[in-house]
Design a binder for these strands. Sequence first.
DNA 1: ATGGATGCTAGGCATATTGTCCACCGTACG
DNA 2: CGTACGGTGGACAATATGCCTAGCATCCAT
Lengths: 159, 159
Amino acid sequence: MTIDDLDARLIALLTAEPRLGVLECSRRLGVARGTVQARLDRLVARGVVTGFGPDVSPAALGYDVTAFVSMEIRQVAGHDPVADRLARIPEVLEVHTITGDSDLLCRVVARTNADLQRVIDQIVDVHGVLRTNSIIALDTPVPYRVLPLVADVPRHGVR
Amino acid sequence: MTIDDLDARLIALLTAEPRLGVLECSRRLGVARGTVQARLDRLVARGVVTGFGPDVSPAALGYDVTAFVSMEIRQVAGHDPVADRLARIPEVLEVHTITGDSDLLCRVVARTNADLQRVIDQIVDVHGVLRTNSIIALDTPVPYRVLPLVADVPRHGVR
DNA sequence: ATGGATGCTAGGCATATTGTCCACCGTACG
DNA sequence: CGTACGGTGGACAATATGCCTAGCATCCAT
């Protein structure tokens, strides 16, 4: 699935100023309103744009500590039962099954380092989790972003 | 900074159906339109909601491979110059400075495993990067989410 | 080359929503 | 007791939306 240069510009525009309506977008991009509407519909239908949800900052809610916790689990149990339990912990923001020495990697947040201990305890308590290893993210010089990728696709995907 | 139960419901509602306007939200939440407007403004002003940008799925763009690359860097150079260079690689979606054996952890995507090699080569080429260690995310049983956290705050933050 | 499908433009129209006011009222708090 | 704050309910003009039509260019397959 590839995207157009216009698609990329549309996504970039909406990322920069998400409050913009379809009409404003069409004005800024110099195309007809119907076109923007069609493009947006197409992007959503294709699954390229999965939503326009509000981006919530855990830090603004007092969750200043971010950590990556990798863990080994009891293999016989499989991955999913453990992941299901982990999903019940609100502070667990993300879970991946991974290659390498560990089996799962998850991103967690906590209010303080002491609070992180509490969260990790909850993870260790999950049935099937054998051992965990925590890495604290001290700083995030590059916060999550997709824009450069989006801008890059039209140059490689087409032609 | 803490949030209200109404704030949490508003965020949850907008996450579920981001296309909703202020008016619809007020109807669904059973409050006045002005209230929703004020709450939204306040959440954005406080930095709890950082934006309403379109969520782009790298996978839908053909970037099916996600990996976490940790790396050691030449300490004398400091973190930032390296992070700046990494930020220039579109496939690098996120960079953290971390505790532990490594210095930086970043999330990268690639079109295929072979393509991942190309991306890692670019990372290794960055001046100041001494060694990298890659972990491929095979599956993501819990994709990034903040909702449970948001729903949890009103119960802990207040009272 | 013809026919058909597709995508963009341009316009029109009724309806819904937005931004911005206002006055009013209860509650919390000094 | 008075004030500040946050919520309600209503109003208004301006704007955006969804949905429609019609014309045109391009690309592709028959």
